[in-house]
């Protein structure tokens, strides 16, 4: 089973992407999509050494909901700051200590930070313990770190890492 279908989740996503790409749902395309979803993970198995397990699908859905709201909020926030006088901006680099361990969770956190209000992730330290975040207009750096940790890092930790160590 493991050898024949190494990444079931990836297979489902690929089949779905194929249906979106051809923009129609017919029996033939469902079969072709399923075939591609089966063969591509087999052919590229060596690129995916880790098995990704989602431990809390509901928490993931909730996280996606928060993410969508924050993307919209983030864009309004940035638009407001751009239209204001740019001399009044107080940009800064803030180091955020990380509790996450896995590659997938860290990259998701970095991408989330870049899409949400006022922050862009800039660099991960070599020891993978600190993510340096650039903020557009900083008020309280400690409050920002606490918000990132509580709002984004805690759910990601719960979804991808709980019980894995």
């Amino acid at each position: 089973m493991r050898r024949l279908l190494p990444h079931p989740l990836l297979s489902v996503v690929l089949a779905g992407l194929w249906l979106l790409l051809v923009n129609q749902v017919s029996a033939g395309h469902v079969v072709l999509g399923a075939l591609l979803g089966w063969l591509i993970p087999l052919a590229t198995a060596r690129f995916w050494p880790e098995q990704t397990r989602i431990r809390h699908p509901l928490a993931l859905l909730r996280y996606l909901g928060i993410l969508i709201i924050d993307i919209v909020r983030g864009s309004f926030h940035v638009a407001h700051l751009i239209l204001r006088n740019p001399v009044r901006l107080r940009p800064s680099f803030v180091p955020v200590p990380l509790a996450l361990k896995t590659d997938l969770a860290i990259s998701l956190l970095a991408n989330t930070i870049s899409l949400t209000p006022g922050t862009v992730s800039t660099r991960l330290s070599t020891d993978r313990r600190t993510l340096i975040v650039h903020t557009l207009d900083t008020g309280d750096a400690d409050a920002l770190i606490a918000e990132i940790k509580q709002r984004y890092e805690a759910p990601l930790r719960q979804i991808f890492e709980e019980g894995s160590e």
């Binding site: 864009s75 940035v78 901006l89 940009p91 870049s114 862009v120 800039t122």
Partner: peptide, 14 residues
């Protein structure tokens, strides 16, 4: 905007 790092914010989000 006035430096590269702040300019990065507009295109990424808005």
């Amino acid at each position: 905007l006035r430096d590269f790092y702040t300019r990065l914010h507009g295109p990424t989000k808005a």
